[in-house]
Design a binder for these strands. Structure first.
Lengths: 204, 204, 204, 204
DNA sequence: TATGAATGAGCATTCATTCAT
DNA sequence: AATGAATGAATGCTCATTCAT
């Protein structure tokens, strides 16, 4: 269970949140709906209802705040996914469930999710710490698919790796297209493709 | 054949280019390597070697310049792809060739391609003309895959549509991951997945 | 009769006008409705439908154009007034008629008249040629009232000068207040005050 | 007593003033001597000796600064006038004194006073908040004359209103002409006309 | 006469950040 | 832990003007 309210929850300031969490929550909402570079520090502090110097007390720079935002989004995803897959043990079912949950996740963020892909688009420089954090999150996703692919029985190691790669491509492609079209059709398509890919594995 | 030099050609100003083309070329290079929002008008005019008012003579705003940049990138892609697929008539081969050419295209842009996905990440607002132009380009890609899927014989209409959707997902996923990892492995994986998807079609 | 169309006549370009007149007419409309400094050369040429260099062929600078605009406005006023006062010979009646015509003139310019007062407000520097032209127009008005006051019989020279001064004050005050309130009440008030002033002259 | 130094006091930065007051004082001097549109933000901050962002910390826009400038000028006028008329109770004397003080006020501002008339000349659009503030100041002047006219005994209500209107016309006319001629003669003439008008009231 | 293209200087405004309290 | 005030540098954009054709 996340320690943060959902990012798209009501905007009225939640006084039960610590200042730090209030900042992250406000920044998350704005980064997702407007983009990182189009969101200024001023708007964040205004909507969070805090002083500018307070933000800089908790985060040493806008970049640092962005890194925390990415970590938080990843945490929300990871915890939500684990929760969603509880009681599902079959690796095929877990993989398919992941695409179901991705659809739900994107819908809840009004199709502005995909924080890591979007931040890489905004900050393409590899030596930037924000960029690096985004790559780390991508690695987390890759590891997840790899782990589940490993547990599928009756296929070769190469087939497992190929499957993981395909899943990741469909996952990213579906996420991106949701953002472009502002609807969840692409993740329905992705789920179909995943099922087809899984079927073709055992079809001989 | 494009009227523009390749975007990543030598940086020294090419005096044979018209001012307008010089601006688009410089802006393209900078938007791709640094992102749209992180590239200022000042840097564009400085590196293009022109006056600020000259830029605004040719483009009424930074947004308008961005729309032209997107159109130009799409044109380069389309013309390059048509050229690459000349003499290939089999739709399966044309589809696979598209992923080969995508790999080449991404390598030539130093893995900063994907102008439309990136701009949608930077400008998520649907009412923005830059966003709309990016969506229009995405539609062009979708149409291309749909057309080629249509020409595959011996499969149902539904299978054709599903195939087109899957191809688009792999295309976008592969393009995005190339940008994240700064290498072309993901497009090799995508090609593999495409071949597998095509094979599974005729396996009945 | 003026050689120029009325400034607030239909905006569609009148092809029977020379380019020079077309520029003055467009500039007049814009200077009056928007102010001199808030009207750019670009808007003038756009709405006049001519090229920028054409404007600079006919007028050596924006300031020069402004001087011509002031001269033209003064000409329109003078000719219109002369026409209005035709057949009126009594100096008292001519003076009163001037305030009637001023009201008409202000109404026709939608209460944006007063070109000379407004330009002096915008360009307060005495060494500026635009400022000087405006002062010259003011002198013309002063001379007009002085001339008519001279022709009133039975009052001393000093009374004549005082009357002229008072008339000028009421004329300027009325014109300015029309612009502020965007209605012609102040010129009705001014006419009343003029009549009272004229009456008090012969009342003993 | 005003909290601000007189606008035309020595230009050297007065460190005893708050940053906000320093900005208003500098802006006032420049708006009066050069006009609003001919005074740039850069000149204001340079002569005020502050950073650009500091100006925007205290005033949200140049327009907002202008509104404050108008309010401040009105305050200086009002307070100065009240002070000047202390101990004068006869409404006729108060009215005449107002024209004496107006002369003094214009001389002290080197004949660049009249902030509200000038701003209306520069910004003729009624929906502009600067314009509206200027109109509000004009209303203050009208109210002042109306109040004093009310207190004159032995004349009808209509005569009181007519008097107030005439006074306002002479006040504005005199102020404007001072600015045009850069001397205070017109306000001497206005005072003469005021005395004549007052005299003609009791001449029955 | 008339114009399309180019320009240097300036515009108002916003940026992320810092400092004294 | 929190803040009001200040800042240098940069933002996107417009200004009146000029020049080669």
């Amino acid at each position: 269970m996340s320690t943060y309210q959902h990012t798209f929850a009501p905007m009225s300031p939640n006084n039960s949140l610590s200042v730090r969490d209030q900042i992250i929550q406000t920044a998350s909402r704005l980064f997702l709906t407007q983009g990182y570079n189009q969101t200024g520090i001023n708007q964040i502090i205004e909507e969070a209802g805090i002083a500018k110097a307070s933000l800089y007390y908790h985060f040493s720079s806008k970049e640092d705040l962005c890194v925390e935002y990415l970590r938080n989004r990843a945490k929300i995803w990871r915890e939500g996914l684990e929760n969603y897959l509880t009681n599902i043990t079959d690796p095929r079912e877990r993989i398919i469930g992941t695409f179901d949950y991705r659809k739900k996740f994107m819908e809840e963020s009004r199709f502005n999710g995909c924080s890591y892909i979007r931040i890489v688009s905004e900050i393409p420089q590899e030596d930037n710490k924000v960029h690096q954090q985004a790559v780390a999150i991508k690695e987390m996703h890759r590891a997840f698919f790899q782990e589940n692919a490993e547990q599928i029985e009756g296929i070769t190691a190469e087939e497992k790796t190929d499957l993981a790669n395909t899943l990741l491509l469909l996952f990213d492609g579906g996420s991106i297209e949701c953002m472009i079209y502002k609807n969840s059709e692409p993740l329905i398509d992705a789920k179909k493709a995943v099922i087809a890919a899984l079927k073709s594995l055992r079809s001989f």
